[in-house]
């Protein structure tokens, strides 16, 4: 196994996530795409950790931190989406123009 195969796969997943964030209208689907991007980052972290053979296992530890922060982000994100849906009865991101002049 070479390290680059994991990096290229992670880059591909990250790009697919970017496409999803840009093209989706439903806020829940935007959050799903963000999860794809975070997964790509985790693959990179663990692959680099294995490549460097770090005594502190930093790659895996930081992957665990990213997983935790992603869980927090999903909780807050879905709470905000539910709040917006309750106020505007729509979860489409392109209809949210309250802050636009």
């Amino acid at each position: 196994m070479i390290v680059n195969q994991f990096l290229v796969l992670a880059a591909l997943l990250f790009s697919i996530g970017i496409y999803g964030v840009l093209v989706r209208r439903n806020a829940v689907l935007v959050l799903l795409s963000i999860e794809l991007m975070l997964t790509a980052v985790n693959i990179n972290l663990v692959a680099f950790g294995q490549y460097l053979q770090d005594a502190l296992v930093s790659g895996q530890v930081f992957a665990l931190f990213v997983i935790t922060v992603a869980a927090a982000e999903v909780g807050i994100g879905l709470a905000i989406v539910i709040l917006i849906f309750r106020n505007r009865s729509s979860a489409n991101v392109d209809e949210l123009d309250l802050l636009k002049w």
Binding site: N4, L12, Y51
Partner: peptide, 16 residues
């Protein structure tokens, strides 16, 4: 961009 950079940087570096 990302695939080019990682391929140029790591080429065939083996994973231990």
């Amino acid at each position: 961009a990302m695939a080019t950079v990682t391929t140029l940087a790591f080429e065939d570096a083996a994973l231990p």
